[in-house]
């Protein structure tokens, strides 16, 4: 705390010292391994969720049935606190150990993260598919394209920016919630925050928070870049015509915060 260390400057000095301590860079509880854990867990969760969510959203969008469910799933998802989902998963699956690389408490964390990542992906991929103009679809069929080609060569490319937006929303959400997963005894970068809090080691807590914040921003900005690149060249908005969407409609369907 400020009063103990006698001023903000020396607090930041302690944080820098914490980072400089070589012991914090080694072993299973070191920064590199915790970062690796965090990224592996987040990546595995997002990938699993995408394998479940995207086919559903794309199919619902392609056939145009069940749209109301696809739209509302992320609204419902937003109303359920991620903290509660994590704790529920911990109670359902216990604090059991996962694969060796992911370690103790990995199963409930993984299940919770997958569950949280699904809704935004379903909604966004559905909206993306619905964005495809009926005339465009008809024109593709008129040109003699088979259904498969219509889906793969017309619908999916047009829907891609929306699908990517869903993946990005989910990924940032998952990286954030994986931090919280330290509460259910899992590792990752949240460990530094939780242990720093438990030990009243505020430099460690602060250092953990800085690393989590930086990691989240890197994920957000790099996926925003991927999203931009995924837009077919012909559909890219010029700087002047870029339309702004209010949150809560299309591109930013689900709030990130976790």
């Amino acid at each position: 705390m400020g009063e103990k260390s006698g001023g903000a400057m020396s607090f930041f000095g302690q944080v820098i010292q914490w980072f400089q301590n070589p012991a914090h860079w080694q072993g299973d509880a070191g920064i590199p391994h915790r970062t690796f854990e965090h990224l592996l867990m987040s990546g595995a969760s997002v990938l699993t969720a995408a394998l479940i969510a995207l086919p559903i959203g794309i199919a619902v969008g392609h056939y145009g049935r069940g749209g109301i469910i696809a739209i509302n799933v992320s609204n419902v998802g937003r109303a359920i606190p991620s903290f509660a989902v994590l704790v529920l998963a911990a109670k359902l699956f216990g604090f059991v150990s996962g694969p060796k690389v992911l370690g103790f408490g990995a199963v409930p964390a993984f299940v919770a993260l997958v569950a949280l990542a699904i809704p935004p992906m379903v909604t966004n991929s559905y909206i993306g598919m619905r964005e495809v103009d009926r005339d465009v679809r008809e024109a593709a069929r008129g040109m003699g394209m088979r259904e498969r080609a219509v889906l793969l060569r017309v619908e999916l490319p047009i829907a891609m920016p929306f699908i990517m937006a869903g993946i990005r929303t989910s990924a940032v959400n998952v990286v954030a919630t994986a931090t919280l997963a330290a509460v259910v005894a899992w590792g990752g970068l949240g460990r530094f925050i939780l242990d720093g809090f438990g030990l009243q080691d505020y430099p460690m807590l602060f250092a953990g928070a800085v690393m989590v914040a930086v990691l989240s921003l890197i994920v957000e900005f790099s996926l925003a870049g991927v999203q931009r690149l995924s837009t077919p060249a012909g559909l890219r908005p010029s700087k002047t015509t870029q339309k702004e969407e209010p949150l809560g409609s299309s591109l930013d369907t689900a709030a990130v915060a976790a």
Binding site: G2, A176, T179, Y202, L205, F206, A209, V212, S216
Partner: peptide, 20 residues
């Protein structure tokens, strides 16, 4: 946008040493 992207537990932890 940056504020929004920082995970809640991290944001609270960044404030905690100062606001207790």
């Amino acid at each position: 946008g940056i504020l929004y992207t920082i995970p809640s537990l991290a944001l609270f932890s960044l404030l905690l040493p100062f606001t207790g």
